[in-house]
Design a protein around this nucleic acid. Structure first.
Lengths: 154, 154
DNA sequence: GAGAGAAGCTTGCATGTGCATGTATGCTTT
DNA sequence: AAAGCATACATGCACATGCAAGCTTCTCTC
């Protein structure tokens, strides 16, 4: 019989799928938080700023259109507009109109932006490596998946 | 020689580690967005609400303390306070003080909360399965990792 | 070539989140 | 038992993000 009428039985445990995704979520949250903290403290930029600079710096001409950035970062187009506004204010980028399509806007990275990215990049890579390493040690179940993704030092 | 003096050379390509993590980020963004959209449209609740209800519904007594919820969901403690406020407003939960520690606050799930969770759970599981399946097909590189995590249909 | 609709970006608004702080309760030391 | 510190949660504030609407420019059809 049920233990007590006052407490309904707990719902059945979530599926293995849900639990596995939950693990991904917790890993994601931990890693992203660690990266955000260290980038902000040591280089004064946020994660989205860092990633935008990264895509710009490694693109052929040092410039990308709004929608391209949005796709690469996984953000909304409107969010990218504000993000680029912040980067412009910090003099890491500037806007340039597309010559052949006047609706388009190129965001171009400046020398200052390249420098800041290069500095932050070292911190980012090191932190990412460390946090993933720690995560693998804290929860060995993650190791095979992390390896499969190429996320553990090889 | 350099193509043109006006465009500095692009930064070296990011490390394999960074690129791998970027893939995780894009996967995360796509899946979470899909889940959020479908939960909101079909059940009128957000992702965090759904997850909080899930942890509450499957806990032994249908109740958890603030910090416990925060840990399980991966949110800030203050964020959980607002989250629970929303759940209370919707009558999915109510607050109950901890008898032995009057600082503590239990969030208790109601019958209504259990019902809503059960409904949403079916949608959530199905969507998660589909989106991951699609992701694996769109980018076969992910398949080994998804399998290692137990994220692909058995 | 003129009008209709699509594409690309920006802006107004609402919201969820984090950080820092405030408040109440518990614990420990003397 | 009083004081001082720690713990647990709530609140003020700032901000990044998404959605919907608006504006400009391009494109296609007639």
């Amino acid at each position: 019989m049920a233990p007590t009428a006052s407490t309904p039985p707990p719902a059945p445990a979530p599926s293995a799928l849900s639990e596995a995704w939950n693990d991904v979520l917790l890993l994601h949250a931990r890693v992203e938080n660690a990266l955000a903290v260290v980038l902000q403290r040591r280089h004064g930029i946020g994660l989205s700023e860092y990633r935008a600079l990264g895509h710009l710096a490694t693109s052929a001409a040092g410039e990308l259109r709004m929608q391209e950035l949005a796709d690469k970062i996984g953000l909304n187009q409107s969010s990218v507009t504000r993000l680029v506004t912040r980067l412009n204010t910090a003099e890491f980028t500037y806007r340039d109109v597309c010559p052949d399509d006047k609706r388009g806007v190129y965001t171009v990275i400046t020398e200052s932006g390249r420098t800041r990215y290069a500095e932050a990049n070292a911190t980012y890579e090191a932190t990412l490596r460390n946090v993933l390493e720690e995560a693998g040690q804290a929860d060995p179940r993650l190791v095979p998946a992390l390896s499969a993704l190429g996320l553990l030092d090889g």
